[in-house]
Simulated scan of single mutants.
Amino acid sequence: MKFVAYAFIALSSLVVLSGCTPTVILGGAAIGGVAVAEERSVGTVIDDATIKTQVMNAIFQKSEPMFTSTSTTVIDGVVLITGEVPTPEDRITLARLIWGVKGVKEVHNEVKVAGSGSGGSFASDSLITTKLKLKLLGDTEIMNINYSVETVDGTVYLMGIAQDEAELQRVKNHAKEISGVRHIISYVKTK
């Protein structure tokens, strides 16, 4: 299971770093391999990847700064968007763009408006996310491949599919142990 996760990360990096057709084919194979390892079907993983690509493209077309200051996760057609934008209108624009993408079933807009009391930094949020992902990877009682983690201003956002409530609680407990975590918001579904 862990090997599949490592393979996916390696192959995904190739997709991002290269525009070559063979790399895209490998990326597709990695998506298929991950789908076999996690709870979603291959078709659902492909649909989610398509939705994510379309959402990211729509945001990029609207505003490059908005694109670079936000992060998107898609699981089973449910979109979680995090990050920070300059105005409340930008936050609403993001929601409208996402709802305009075919296949989106639900939107969790956790984007913060700059200057609205948020004081977290990108570096500390990235460190929290990395620490939590490593803890999940090292815990043999958690199917870590089923979880997506984002951190914004010390708030950890979880998405994915838990095997049961006990597994989800283990994930939350790992998050609570990390210095700098202020809140944990879970959009995880139980199997």
Rank of each mutant, 00 (worst) to 15 (best):
Q61N: 15
Q61W: 03
M66Y: 05
T68K: 15
T68P: 00
T70M: 08
T70E: 07
S71C: 01
T72C: 12
T73W: 00
D76N: 15
D76S: 15
D76Q: 11
V78E: 15
V79D: 08
V79K: 01
T82Q: 02
T82K: 02
G83T: 03
E84L: 11
E84I: 15
E84D: 02
V85N: 09
P86K: 13
P88L: 12
E89W: 11
A95G: 14
I98A: 08
I98W: 00
I98R: 04
V101Y: 07
G103S: 08
E106Y: 09
E106L: 14
E106Q: 14
E106M: 10
V107Y: 02
A114F: 08
S116K: 05
G117A: 06
G120V: 08
A123K: 08
S124I: 05
D125T: 03
D125L: 01
S126I: 01
S126E: 07
K131V: 09
K133H: 06
K133T: 10
L134A: 15
K135Q: 13
K135M: 04
L136D: 10
L137K: 02
D139R: 04
E141S: 13
I142Y: 06
N146F: 04
S148C: 00
V149F: 00
E150R: 14
T151F: 02
T151K: 00
V152E: 14
D153A: 10
D153V: 05
T155D: 04
Y157E: 09
Y157M: 04
L158Y: 02
L158Q: 01
I161K: 14
E165A: 15
A166W: 00
Q169D: 14
Q169H: 09
Q169P: 01
